[in-house]
């Protein structure tokens, strides 16, 4: 930890990494809360894993066909948006088939990605970064993209918080009150897809689902409103990415994996703590009831 703090002011890449973690936390706190409350973590997982198709295809076109302008992250965004669109349409039109389609999008996305990786000559070191994350390699451009997405999400939540709350709580009521449920769900999945794309550079697509859900699920045990969950999840996510970065620096561990391990540990500690508090309350309640009996 001391080594990290000492190196932070002198190494721009460390500062970028810390900033990336903090910017990712805002998106993670907002979208993660919706993913947890609406119980669509499987949807987010499907979108995250389908990214590999876009990453693989973009790299193939760059290397084999000389499309040097095509950034792998752009390919990932296209694949994620396509996956989000398919899942949203199926989810709204044929809900009973939703899990099958998510599973198909998840697996086919991975399969297409693996095929393109196989067809692309050369060593795919950069793809490993997308699979497992490499926050130390975050470019300045990615920071601007993350900041832009945060801004979009804050405006989105500021304007439509109650409509989204209604859709998450009681979809039927939302329809009765004239909320455009389909449009909002599609928008929510599009923003989830874009968040997932940007989180990939922090923790990688294999672990992005954990960063999206664990801080929000932990926050759910610490606060009683959705807005509170968003704030607590954002702060938790910021603390976890900063701690993951700091703890992994000196022993040269992967920062993404360290962050997720910390997030998991925090979640289980909070869940365990909440259970203990509940059990204690029950005991106190029972003993009060016994004492007040004549």
């Amino acid at each position: 930890m001391g080594e990290f703090l000492h190196a932070l002011p002198t190494h721009a890449f460390l500062l970028h990494a810390l900033l990336a973690g903090l910017l990712a936390s805002v998106a993670c706190g907002i979208i993660g809360t919706y993913v947890v409350v609406r119980r669509i973590s499987y949807v987010a997982g499907g979108i995250a894993h389908s990214l590999l198709a876009g990453l693989g295809a973009a790299r193939y076109l760059r290397v084999v066909h000389g499309w040097t302008w095509l950034d792998p992250l752009l390919g990932a965004a296209v694949a994620a948006l396509l996956a989000a669109g398919i899942i949203a349409i199926v989810g709204l039109r044929a809900r009973q088939r939703e899990d099958t389609v998510i599973g198909a999008v998840w697996a086919v996305g991975m399969a297409v990605g693996v095929l393109f990786i196989h067809l692309t000559p050369g060593y795919n070191e950069d793809l490993l970064g997308y699979l497992f994350g490499n926050i130390l390699m975050v470019a300045k451009r990615d920071l601007w993209l993350m900041g832009g997405l945060d801004l979009v999400l804050l405006v989105f939540v500021g304007l439509l918080f109650h409509q989204l709350q209604a859709v998450c709580f009681d979809e039927e009521l939302a329809r009765v009150r004239g909320v455009a449920v389909e449009g909002l769900y599609l928008l929510l999945l599009v923003l989830t897809a874009l968040t997932v794309v940007l989180l990939v550079s922090v923790v990688g697509l294999v672990m992005v689902i954990a960063l999206l859900t664990l801080p929000a699920a932990t926050a759910g045990h610490l606060t009683r409103t959705m807005a509170g969950m968003m704030v607590v999840a954002t702060l938790l996510c910021a603390a976890l990415t900063a701690a993951g970065l700091a703890l992994s620096y000196a022993p040269n561990l992967p920062a993404g994996a360290t962050t997720i391990a910390l997030a998991g540990l925090t979640y289980f500690l909070v869940v365990g703590g909440a259970r203990l508090v509940q059990a204690r309350r029950r005991q106190v309640g029972l003993s009060r009831g016994t004492a007040s009996r004549p």
Partner: peptide, 16 residues
């Protein structure tokens, strides 16, 4: 188990 206060739930009826 939805995370909302009673006031927030009632306010949803004001949508529209």
């Amino acid at each position: 188990h939805f995370p909302a206060t009673v006031l927030e739930v009632v306010l949803l009826g004001r949508l529209g």
